[in-house]
Design a protein around this nucleic acid. Structure first.
Lengths: 110, 110
DNA sequence: TCCCTATGCATAGGACTCCTATGTATTATA
DNA sequence: TATAATACATAGGAGTCCTATGCATAGGGA
């Protein structure tokens, strides 16, 4: 998709939290899910995704647990913490405010 | 306003172009206008605004001209170039795509 | 069997955006 | 006459995201 990458900044952590509010997921699953859900609008790179997951965990918003019975592929499942759920609500509201504010300016310029 | 600053990134140049599509404006006027139009949602700092204006000019999207008859306050008025107008259209479309994509994910998580 | 692709996680280094802090100068106001 | 508001500018740093690279396993086709 031809979406301006500059405009994407800041949405990564919001969307990771949102996706994990559905159910625990592992990194690769998060990336493919957000791609599918948006018709390919997002194509997160490993170099963005994994450091972001590590930071969210460091900040206590998500927690990761290695899973994999012997013979299974090793995956790190992340789930939202209570704090992460609260931040998700805040970030969602901020996102709504941003949308309204930007669209106000764009509308007024027409 | 309590708007998450991370989410703001990328909107600065879009909104500057949008504001200048109304009429030529000088830097300080741009900052106060975007604040008024959004009820204070944006509070752009000089350290963000002026470098951004310089970059937009360097990229050929806007052009600045010093104005000020003697006795008047010296102001640098910027106006959109033809290229700037085209980029504004592109960026507006990208912004719309981003909004839809993010909201798709958020909605699906409810 | 062997190679290639997809899956799955990770990090170093760099580009880019925005902010804080600071500087200069003029005009209006208390 | 001091202070706030106006008006522009830049250096330095923090933070976010990307490119590039590395490692490892599973599955499918030749």
């Amino acid at each position: 998709m031809g979406m301006d990458t500059e405009l994407i900044k800041g949405t990564l952590s919001l969307l990771i939290l949102s996706l994990l509010s559905r159910k625990p997921m592992y990194g690769y699953e998060i990336a493919t899910t957000v791609g599918q859900d948006t018709g390919g609008a997002f194509d997160w790179k490993e170099g963005s995704l994994y450091p972001s997951l590590h930071k969210l965990e460091k900040d206590g918003l998500i927690r990761g647990q290695w899973q994999g019975k012997p013979g299974e592929r090793r995956r790190k499942y992340y789930h939202l913490t209570k704090g992460g759920r609260a931040v998700l609500v805040e970030k969602s509201e901020s996102w709504g405010q941003l949308c309204r504010a930007v669209n106000q300016v764009l509308e007024k310029s027409k």
